[in-house]
Amino acid sequence: MITIEQVNKVFRLPHDKKTTLKQRFVNVFQKNTYERFYALRDINLNVKQGEFVGIIGKNGSGKSTLLKIMASVLKPTSGSVSIKANVAPFLELGVGFQADSTVKDNIFLYGALLGMSRKQITAKYDWIINFSGLEKFVDAKLKNLSSGMQVRLGFSITVIVNSPILLVDEVFAVGDIDFQQKCYDSFMNFKKNGRTIVFVSHDLNTIENFCDRAILLKEGSVSAEGHPKDVVTAYTNS
């Protein structure tokens, strides 16, 4: 489903950021110095259909960058990524909503961004509102919702869009117990349907309970891979 071969992602960290013309003109003879920062180093990964893969690691270890590469939001500096299906944009806090628009408008915009048609979104609209539990807030601005509510909304839309691959970035942290249960139920459903999930979490219990395989990232490289229990142990011992 997803094949990643020898992927490197290098971010250039300028020592002195020059983004305005003046800075460029003034320093025109001065060489622009920067460090090469390897966010991902030689990643090889193969995710099969229907597999649940969990990614863990410390902050800054490249987890989100890897998800962004899978979502083709970021292009790898070198290496190849091939994805054999539609990928739902990955889900995380503030998924890419417009803060100044209403919940309703955001559902339609987000649905359209996920590649749905008006008909499809309209058909699923009530379900989304219902699942996210936002019946009272349909006409509220998104910025006035709590972060938990925003994640619930994002999750509900992502659940309903029928992409075979789902990328999830740390969403369990903000939902309340009821919603977490809903998420778990949905995850079980995905499994039954043969959808593929790659998800990043700091919640090690979730990783152990749901994943078929776990990957531990350390400074951009895979430092352990295999059965979730072993990988989590490797992480907690490091």
Partner: peptide, 19 residues
Amino acid sequence: LTQPYLEDYKHDISSGRKN
């Protein structure tokens, strides 16, 4: 809640990204 994506799972994939 029942999840309606079960039945039209295939349908959506083919039409995605063309809208």
